[in-house]
């Protein structure tokens, strides 16, 4: 019933003003943002400049260990690994980013619709979600790319499809918790319809949650893309990709372990950066979670 004593908490609904300051104060967000910015910058710079041409094969330079001239060494074709990592970043980021976009564009409207309509629409969406979640995502991504042909575009689709139910579920859950809120009731009393209420009152107030989820899916997308490329189903040669570099390194493990180490580190650092950013965001948005990691 009533409770005049306990302080009320606006979970995830903190206003913008204090958010910026809380984010700046968050060490994990700052670290994550810097790492992500560096990786993105590397990817952007690679369009104009890389230390070496990543398509040029120089047999004389093959399997060089890291040195001043080749920071991360060279591969079995004599290509500069640092340059390949720079170009590979493009690919990883593009695939993961577009896949998140697909998830957001399809999942958010679906989830919001289900929460607004309830009933049959909602049941159908939940059933659809159950179904998609029943397919192990890696397996299905492999299936899709293998069937429709390997390549970055199909990798994006394969990863993007599995982002849809994730965003639909997050949106639906958050929207369902907002619909009984009194400000939504007040909007209904004011004659506003479901679509208008969703746009005006629901979506802006779950945007925070969606941003956090988007960072998580982004980092999962990087990992998934690496897995697909490793199996030869991602970006095709001569375009370098981190996963394919690892695949090529596998046969060279005994003589050139550096070929495996650096692309792996690139993946780890990128994913770490995104995860730290996501954690920082989540903590800043949800005062309840602060300090819980």
């Amino acid at each position: 019933m009533t409770d005049p004593v306990m302080p009320h908490m606006e979970v995830g609904l903190a206003p913008e003003t204090s958010l910026a300051s809380r984010l700046l104060a968050s060490r994990s967000f700052a670290t994550g943002a810097i790492i992500t910015a560096v990786i993105v910058a590397m990817a952007l710079v690679s369009f104009g400049w890389t230390p070496y041409d990543v398509t040029k094969i120089v047999i004389a330079d093959r399997l060089k260990s890291p040195s001043l001239s080749h920071w991360f060494g060279t591969d079995h074709f004599g290509r500069d690994i640092f340059s390949m990592i720079m170009v590979g970043a493009r690919n990883s980021i593009a695939v993961a980013l577009v896949a998140v976009g697909i998830g957001l564009a399809a999942g958010v409207p679906l989830g919001a619709w289900a929460a607004a309509r309830r009933g049959l629409v909602d049941d159908a969406l939940m059933r659809f979600n159950d179904l998609v979640f029943a397919f192990p995502s890696i397996l299905s991504a492999v299936m899709i790319t293998a069937i429709f042909g390997p390549g970055a575009v199909n990798a994006i689709i394969a990863i993007g499809i599995f982002n849809i139910p994730v965003f639909a579920r997050v949106t639906r859950g958050a929207a369902l918790s907002l619909w009984p809120r009194e400000y939504v009731l007040a909007a209904r009393v004011s004659g506003k319809g479901a679509a208008r209420i969703t746009v005006e009152h629901i979506l802006p107030n779950i945007a925070n949650l969606l941003i956090v989820q988007a960072t998580i899916q982004f980092s999962l997308g990087i990992l998934a893309e690496a897995g697909l490329s490793y199996l030869g189903l991602g970006a095709q040669p001569p375009m370098p990709s981190w996963g394919r570099m690892l695949f090529e390194a596998q046969t060279m493990m005994a003589i050139g372990p550096h070929m495996a180490i650096f692309p792996g580190l690139a993946i780890i650092v990128t994913v770490l950066g995104l995860n730290l950013m996501g954690d920082g965001l989540r903590d800043a948005l949800d005062p309840r979670l602060r300090g819980k990691g």
Binding site: S219, L246, A249, M253, G264, I268, L276
Partner: peptide, 17 residues
């Protein structure tokens, strides 16, 4: 936090090595 970021097949390569 670091462990989550590690792709398992890369970790596998290191273990093999």
């Amino acid at each position: 936090q670091f462990g989550i970021a590690v792709p398992n097949f890369w970790f596998a390569l290191l273990l093999v090595y």
